[in-house]
């Protein structure tokens, strides 16, 4: 489905505005917008599962956390800092984990699938928070951020805030364009039809399990990309990144923005980040304010903020 004209223009303006944030020179806003873009990648990766394949996963944080922890392990344990090595390794690790977890989880359907994915996320949370060798509940600081050097000369240092910010911006744009391409291809149409009527798709000749697993793995790899970038930006990983709260928050982001649109969840991530920021400043009960806003959107905008922008368009 093509994007509404206004949405397309809004996305372009948003992308340009985000690209210009580092020019403000304000460290806080650069960090804030960097985190916001990471959340966007995280949310659009989950939208592929929830909005297109109809797979409501509460274990999506597993791939975010595994990728982030692997980056920490590669940097601290092996002194491997080149993003040309660490990025493919982290994404492949997230993808392999998604293949295994997806292969097992997709044997269940409906609420049972939700519970199995939740269980995998929680298993990893307890494994990492209770294993001193993995940093325990305190987490792990990344001693060396990803850095690309050629002939002893550093050409890209992601420890530099602006460079990390630029990398996150590029990753967001590429992730979004990749997913747009995927959902507009036959693969995306098949996923949508599986969500609507899986039984009928099987009698039409589709091995639906393979399609769902492929979506699960692709979503997992992109969640892994978000985790890699998060660990790079903050230089720190902790077991809370595996927790159900993290998975729940990103799911809320998808629903708030409007599932099955890709741009909706990105918008949801931006709105939720801004709302949280200002609510935190206004009151110590900020989470109640955010909760009330989420309830209002779910009740009055069942198709999320994207539904509001698209009007009656189905």
């Amino acid at each position: 489905m093509s994007l509404p004209q206004g949405v397309r223009a809004g996305l372009l303006v948003g992308a340009v505005a985000l690209a210009l944030v580092p020019l403000s020179g304000d460290r806080f806003w650069v960090q804030f917008a960097g985190k916001l873009m990471i959340t966007c990648i995280y949310a659009v990766s989950l939208d592929l599962l929830v909005g297109y394949a109809g797979l409501v996963s509460l274990g999506h944080s597993a791939f975010f956390g595994l990728s982030a922890y692997l980056l920490a392990g590669l940097a601290n344990g092996l002194g491997l800092v080149s993003p040309l090595a660490t990025l493919p390794l982290c994404l492949a690790f997230a993808g392999l984990a998604a293949l295994l977890i997806g292969w097992l989880s997709l044997r269940a359907t409906g609420v049972y699938f939700v519970m199995v994915t939740l269980a995998f996320g929680q298993m990893l949370y307890y494994l990492f928070s209770e294993s001193p060798g993995l940093g325990g509940s305190d987490g792990v600081s990344i001693l060396q951020r990803p850095r690309l050097a050629v002939l002893g000369r550093t050409i890209l240092d992601l420890g530099d805030r602006t460079a990390a910010y630029a990398a996150i911006w590029v990753a967001l744009v590429l992730s979004f364009l990749l997913l747009r391409r995927v959902v507009q291809a036959p693969f995306g149409h098949v996923l949508t039809a599986i969500r609507i009527n899986e039984g009928r798709m099987r009698t039409l000749g589709y091995g639906t399990g393979r399609y769902k697993l492929a979506a699960f793995v692709l979503g997992g790899v992109l969640a892994g990309l978000a985790g890699y970038l998060d660990a790079t930006l903050y230089g720190f990983v902790n077991p809370a990144q595996f927790g159900w709260r993290q998975s729940g928050l990103v799911l809320v982001t998808v629903l708030l923005g409007g599932k099955g649109t890709l741009y909706g969840p990105a918008l949801g991530a931006a709105l939720l980040s801004v709302l949280e920021h200002f609510a935190e400043r206004a009151t110590e009960h900020w989470s109640a304010v955010v909760g009330a806003a989420v309830i209002a959107v779910v009740l009055f905008l069942p198709r999320g903020v994207a539904g509001l922008l698209e009007g009656s368009r189905g």
Partner: peptide
């Protein structure tokens, strides 16, 4: 299209 469903990614 299901007759081509052996391949996951295909043009429209």
């Amino acid at each position: 299209h299901s007759r081509n469903a052996g391949r996951l990614f295909q043009p429209r």
